[in-house]
Design a protein around this nucleic acid. Structure first.
Lengths: 227, 227
DNA sequence: CCGATATCTTGACTTTCATCAAGGGGTTTG
DNA sequence: CAAACCCCTTGATGAAAGTCAAGATATCGG
């Protein structure tokens, strides 16, 4: 039953984690679960935002259509990540479009649900605000730390974040389009390809759109090596 | 009269920018202005946070004392930046210590002032929350974009952010300790030194702790070159 | 089933940055 | 005043990633 797993993922998304149990339940009860096939559109640029989105499974890409007509990928989100908070809280129009890069499960939390919660209990606003600042600082230091690692280590770290098991072997599903992953990790497709090749020594095998990790702990050791 | 300039800087700090005029005035009226000499301590690790800090002039470094006894710089903040929001909003103990890396002017906003504002008007919480998410995303994309530039371009960008004039020539004051700047820009001191050398072509001259930019626009052009 | 197109991988070369090592300029200390 | 020290700069070298180009593989349409 994937539903229970999805609930657990949603509960641990950054936005929800800050809240006490009962408030999370409130939000979950008002949330909308939805499946998207590859290429399906979540929303288009200039549409008015009415919800915050949490990726439960799969990959979402945010893109902007350039004046010259082709699309520029702004960012890519994987399982457990949320996006659209800023615009949803103001009911502003989206500055980008969103599309499923792989088959996806997404939870939509109506922005009203969150706004109601904050209006009703200003303590909730303070809590989320505080955890957001924390998240902001940890993100910055995380990005700085990632610079100190090699490409292969960054890829390994990234795979670990997506692995849903604690030990032993594990399989991670990747988007078909490797350019998306490369962009997300701040490298060129060629470099990503070479990083994958190096990760073979750490027990990672790439098969089409799946990454097989033969030993989670071995990969952890590899990522944390000599920094 | 530097006081007016400081007020303008404070009003434009990320935290304040989100708020409507009258609320900014409220916060400013309850804020404490303070000067610190080089090496002076703002707060120590484990002290309870009671204020949010905005750097008006100079450089503040956040550091942690490692078990082995020497200090590790966690981050460095320059004019216009704020820090300590997350801990202040929860009255939690500081996880790091803060010290003036140069002579500094700092504004302290008592966390009570902000908390009162949010408690009294939950709309304020929503506004700050929304602007914080914006800031978060812009920070991430900014960091990603910076990776695509050479070291010299990053240094140039950094100097531009500190320059307080729009056109013509300008002088930026740097911390005495260049290791701080290097750390902030994610490079080694040697690389920083070489980047400075390259920026001579873009009309930047380093004299002790001052960077003289002979033409702001020329530097802008250099930074944006061929990406 | 086969060819056309797009995507991914591999190879050779270049640029950039980290590292190690040595030299220079200023300040501090005996 | 000179020796010691600190920090910054400069040089040489190597590792990592970007670029350009070619080859391999996969996907799609006929």
């Amino acid at each position: 039953m994937p539903h229970e797993i999805h609930k657990a993922i949603a509960r641990n998304a950054m936005l929800m984690k800050a809240l006490p149990e009962q408030h999370r339940d409130t939000l979950l009860s008002r949330a909308i679960w939805k499946h998207y096939d590859r290429g399906e559109t979540l929303f288009l640029q200039d549409e008015e935002a009415t919800a915050i989105h949490i990726v439960l499974d799969g990959w979402i890409k945010l893109y902007r259509v350039t004046p010259s007509g082709n699309e520029a990928v702004v960012s890519v989100f994987a399982r457990g990540e949320s996006f659209g908070e800023a615009v949803a809280l103001r009911n502003a129009p989206y500055p980008v479009s969103a599309e499923a890069a792989t088959p996806c499960d997404v939870m939509h939390i109506p922005s009203n649900a969150l706004v109601d919660l904050i209006r009703h209990d200003s303590e909730v606003g303070l809590t989320i605000l505080s955890s957001t600042f924390n998240h902001l600082h940890s993100l910055v230091s995380q990005l700085e730390q990632l610079k100190a690692q090699t490409g292969a280590q960054r890829v390994g770290f990234f795979l670990l974040a997506l692995a849903d098991c604690e030990t032993g072997q594990c399989t991670v599903k990747l988007p078909y389009d490797k350019v998306l992953i490369a962009g997300r990790l701040g490298m060129k497709p060629e470099s990503l390809s070479r990083s994958f090749a190096r990760l073979k020594d750490a027990g990672v095998k790439i098969e089409k759109d799946m990454a097989r990790i033969s030993d989670i702990q071995a990969l952890r050791d590899y990522v944390e090596e000599e920094q």
